[in-house]
Design a protein around this nucleic acid. Structure first.
Lengths: 109, 109
DNA sequence: ACTATCTATCGTAATATTGCAATGTTATAA
DNA sequence: TTATAACATTGCAATATTACGATAGATAGT
């Protein structure tokens, strides 16, 4: 079916899954890493950096923007993108919450 | 196309994306949380816990197993699943590496 | 052997994602 | 106004994911 039965799960589970989906593509990881590294909030010469078409990059940027991880400000004819620090921390905590739930010294299998 | 151009990205970016994809479904999050909570490494009465069909759960378990996050040991007629602590920590570090790459005090936009 | 139980796999339908060419949109420059 | 440059959107083809019924495989009990 390709459709997810979100009503079966908690809001937090759905939110975490939705955020994880945004991380689930190497191009979006690459974009985030590029934005982090080039502190100067670079715009879409990501097309040069990655080898994807302009339309494709734009689509990935939109998904990152929709989940709130980045924001873009119009700078003349081009758009400056950058990480949204607040949301970044929020998402980090979401993941950390899951990871920390598992006790490191659990004498299981 | 639905196909990802993995050759354009680094191994680490592809690996992180692949792992994130496993987290990108609430059922798999729910399974992991259930495994964490029920320390006793419970098997597929996840079918009871979540409201999905047995075949569907089995499919999700396989994806979690393939990425290495869980492992199952046959216990008579049933299978005991549990978190793989080593891999869990490894994956946690993968994500943390990305998150920590962004300095909290970045005077950007 | 026969049966019941648990889990995995196969096949299939419905939906989602990825990628790009073509086309819009907006802002600057001449 | 016209042209140009930078993005965004649309529309489409190819592929991936999700879900489940049906079926197969393995094990325990009788």
């Amino acid at each position: 079916m390709g459709i997810t039965k979100t009503d079966l799960f908690t809001e937090k589970q759905n939110e975490l899954a939705k955020v994880a989906k945004v991380f689930a593509h190497p191009a979006r990881i690459a974009i985030l890493e590029y934005l982090i590294q080039s502190n100067t909030c670079i715009n879409g010469d990501l097309v040069q950096e990655l080898g994807l078409a302009q339309a494709t990059i734009s689509q990935h940027l939109r998904e990152l923007k929709e989940i709130g991880l980045i924001k873009g400000s119009i700078e003349g004819v081009s758009v400056n993108y950058c990480i949204d620090a607040m949301r970044w921390a929020e998402v980090q905590n979401l993941f950390q919450g899951l990871f920390d739930g598992f006790p490191k010294i659990s004498g299981c299998c």
